[in-house]
């Protein structure tokens, strides 16, 4: 997304082709639809995580918490309060923002490893709450939620539309003055302060926006899976967001999207191929860090620049 020219760029063509392909996915069968839908949501969560990480310089190791907040809110609103899809979804967004604001307020005073561990602690804490609290279904979670329209295909288009819209909003944010302030804080918090930015407030803003879209992804995922359980908030799920982002490339807006798709398909294939599928993922992780630290998309763009 580096090109600023007026002409139709390679990136624009690639994105257009990508969207057309995504729209055609239901033709490829139910499983492919399901797989792409979950890849889209993982990508959305990772992209929102990356707003905080790649753009603002804060590594959250507990971001699955917000996925869980979005998901649980939607599930609770539907199954306990009998609200409709739209109302429940709106509540999920609001709750994600509220949680993001409160937890963000407590976390953004810290940076680097302290921030990572504090977010991890909050994630584990709320995992513990979800396991223990009957209202949230305890360890069984909440299940048996009806999917909108009762068909996977139609719901897929809902996911696709909301994900694309969310990505567009996130992209606009990164290109706005707000996005620039994120990057200023990331690159040099001291200088950012000097030029008059309220560093904590900038970080908190990024944290809240990031939580909201992770919550959106979690809420949409609940209706795809038709269930939610406390494990969705465990730190290992948060690590997946980090993994996906670095896999695709944290310094490119679409990096997490590419990473999300690669990861989803890799896990899908590896599990069918071997019972040691986690080993495969582990090896890929190690290889990424050692050989492709800029992510797949990062390398691709570099390679294109060179040509």
């Amino acid at each position: 997304m580096q090109s600023e020219s007026e002409e139709v760029s390679f990136e624009q063509i690639a994105i257009a082709v990508g969207i057309i392909l995504l729209a055609l996915v239901p033709l490829a069968g139910r499983h492919m639809t399901h797989l792409v839908a979950s890849a889209l949501l993982l990508s959305l969560a990772a992209t929102s995580f990356n707003l905080l990480f790649g753009y603002t310089g804060l590594l959250s190791f507990g971001h699955a918490l917000f996925w869980g907040v979005g998901g649980y809110t939607l599930a609770v609103m539907m199954s306990r309060f009998g609200l409709g899809y739209v109302e429940s979804f709106v509540m999920a967004v609001i709750m994600s923002a509220v949680f993001g604001a409160v937890i963000g307020f407590l976390c953004v005073r810290h940076t680097r490893i302290y921030f990572a561990i504090l977010t991890l602690a909050f994630g584990q804490m709320f995992y513990g709450v979800a396991v223990k609290w009957d209202f949230l279904g305890g360890s069984d979670g909440i299940y048996g939620l009806p999917r909108p329209f009762n068909t996977l295909e139609l719901y897929y288009y809902v996911i696709l539309a909301i994900t694309l819209a969310s990505l567009f909003i996130l992209y606009k944010i990164t290109r706005s003055s707000l996005g620039l302030s994120f990057m200023a804080v990331r690159d040099n918090a001291f200088r950012a302060k000097f030029i008059g930015l309220d560093v904590s407030r900038v970080r908190l803003t990024s944290f809240i926006i990031s939580s909201i879209f992770s919550g959106v992804a979690g809420a949409l995922y609940v209706l795809l899976e038709t269930a939610i359980s406390p494990e969705t908030m465990l730190w290992t799920h948060s690590a997946e967001f980090v993994f996906v982002t670095l896999l695709g490339g944290p310094r490119v807006f679409l990096g997490p999207l590419v990473g999300g798709f690669i990861y989803s398909f890799l896990a899908d294939v590896a599990m069918s191929a071997t019972e040691y599928w986690l080993l495969v993922i582990g090896v890929v992780l190690v290889a990424i860090v050692l050989f492709f630290p800029h992510g797949v998309l990062g390398y691709f763009l570099k390679w294109r620049e060179k040509r």
Partner: peptide, 14 residues
């Protein structure tokens, strides 16, 4: 854990 139902659906649908 996050994909129990997805994987079940995969076995049947794909």
């Amino acid at each position: 854990r996050e994909n129990v139902l997805k994987n079940i659906r995969k076995m049947v649908e794909e």
